[in-house]
Design a protein around this nucleic acid. Structure first.
Lengths: 328, 328
DNA sequence: CGCCCTCATGGAAACGATTCCATCATTATT
DNA sequence: AATAATGATGGAATCGTTTCCATGAGGGCG
């Protein structure tokens, strides 16, 4: 491997000092002819300033860290895409890690980011507050996306307006005549379940706690929860699934038990995914602006270097397709 | 922000020289009592060696770069997941970038990685060989995943056995009696189209070039291609879609034109995605081991630091569901 | 004409780690 | 017992950049 060309090589070739080269390249003052010569030489030698040297000198790494539970999940994939898009626009590298919604993994990854000298992080937290103590103590600028960690209200977050989204969905179902509506929730989505209960209450429908169930993040667990719910309470007429994996499980379980959608069961899913349209019938969904959430979070973490920033809540959209009908 | 604790702080607090601390922490020789004292002090001060200092000294960054066309696409999401899993097991950070299958973006991102001092890259190349000249010239260790760049056969690649997969699929369709089989391909998948033609030829079916069409990577373009194909050649009885976005477009277009699957049209898609099972009917697919491709590529790039490595081809699996039937 | 101010410029320090090398002590060998 | 060998240890150089500071030249103004 050929040795890298350094600033010293450029300085020598251009017949100037390294300080001058550095100034020219980072926009400092220099005489026009010097500037021109340095730029020409740098281009000819294909010189790239090493981020290593710069970062060490400036004691900061520039880049931004990105922690998501699972890139494979379409929702987090879109969040990540938003972060990457914003970072790219700003010319910042992104160091990415997958937590699997596990606090210990999260801790390890934060440690790794710290070692790398990263000082700005966008994360979809596992929910546990534990890992974030050391992070903020070490001076990390953190912005949460999609969720917050319990008890860390000091960390700004970019969230979907889950309450609004769930409210709209529940109102829609109730408007169709449904009364026995179930909620299938997942990891770290207490917010959504709470909104579900509140809205039902506000509409004068008594909340049946047996109809509010939670599955783990895995496909199997979600399927078991959905299937159990359908078998145990065949009287329910509508279901709100709190995420795309849960929605998938619900569709599968309903099909397995020969429940016709929407005749026997109305279905609304939180999160819009490509396959929602391909499903038979196409799924009515509450669409959170996943890509936007990532983009805004990255923007926030880049702008708020140092000072405290306030979080944001982005509106969701109810997309009515074909999976909801009047109460049977 | 509190100042970072450096190796010097640890050395002072432990009453030894910085060299000794470095040796203890990186497994060099030291007397038992010194080692113990240093470790105790380091733990107490919560010392983390800065990767910046180390990398600069060693002139290498350790981490690995990851370039994919689109994280939002389920397939590349799984590839990325595989790379991240392997990197995490090896304790290496991953710097990720999205190319959008655009050679210029790819070039820029490679430049960024170079600046960051990354020297190992896993990439799903856009297909253009242009960007990779500078990369290998700068001494980057590159491993391609899923595709190769034209004319860069010197760069090892971890691929799915597309030929085998397509062959199996086509044989299956021909076995069902189909003769007018179309292929809907996408960006950088000449390999698959070639395998399609070859297999048909080998089975004694004449290849109708009008039935081999290509869409761009966007949803709209793929839909237009599929729709055009169906309208222009209503006599075709089966279709192989060369990727999940293309498959999605085909399902949508078929539905729009009231083609019943599988009665009017048999459908096979390259790539297994969660929604393939949710589709009505569930889609028969050629499943490439996406996660494995990523994992193996990362393994390869980590192990083959320096020396040349050979690529690998991983088998695909034909998963028969319900979207193929006998010729009508 | 002289002084001071401005501006371009280069040398050198600093960032935080690793690592070479010299030093010193302790033990083994002849 | 003298010398060599071994091993622990710390000082200092080094990586590539930015930035402080000193230097010198040149020009404007009194």
């Amino acid at each position: 491997m050929r040795a890298r060309t350094t600033i010293k090589d450029v300085a020598e070739a251009a017949g100037v000092g390294v300080a001058t080269v550095s100034r020219v390249l980072s926009g400092g003052s220099a005489s026009p002819q010097t500037r021109e010569r340095v730029l020409a030489v740098a281009a000819q030698l294909d010189y790239r300033p090493s981020a290593l040297g710069r970062n060490l000198r400036q004691r900061r790494t520039g880049g931004i860290g990105l922690l998501v539970p699972d890139v494979t999940d379409s929702f987090y994939g879109r969040v990540a895409d938003g972060v990457l898009a914003c970072a790219r626009a700003a010319g910042e590298p992104v160091i990415m890690g997958v937590t699997g919604d596990d606090a210990e993994s999260e801790s390890e990854l934060i440690g790794m980011l710290l070692e790398q000298g990263v000082e700005r992080v966008v994360a979809v937290p596992s929910g546990d507050h534990e890992p974030w103590g050391p992070a903020v103590r070490a001076g990390l600028t953190v912005v949460f996306a999609d969720r917050r960690a319990t008890g860390r209200d000091d960390i700004p977050a970019v969230l979907a307006d889950e309450r609004g989204g769930v409210r709209t969905a529940v109102e829609y179902l109730v408007g169709l005549g449904h009364r026995r509506i179930a909620y299938l929730g997942g990891h770290g989505q207490g917010q959504r379940a709470a909104a579900f209960r509140d809205t039902l209450g506000a509409l004068g429908v008594t909340v049946d706690e047996e109809l509010v169930v939670f599955g783990r993040a895995t496909r199997d667990s979600a399927y078991a929860a959905a299937s159990g719910l359908f078998q145990h309470r065949p009287d329910l007429t509508a279901l709100v699934a709190g995420g795309n994996q849960l929605g998938e499980a619900a569709v599968l379980a309903a099909r397995e038990l020969d429940l016709r959608v929407p005749r026997d069961l109305s279905l609304i899913m939180f999160d819009d995914v490509p396959w929602a349209e391909l499903c038979a019938p196409p799924l009515t969904v509450i669409a959170p602006p996943a890509q936007d959430i990532g983009y805004r979070a990255a923007e926030l973490v880049l702008r708020s270097a140092g000072r405290r920033a306030r979080g944001v809540s982005l509106p969701t959209e109810l997309i009515i397709r074909g999976s909801c009908g009047p109460r049977r």
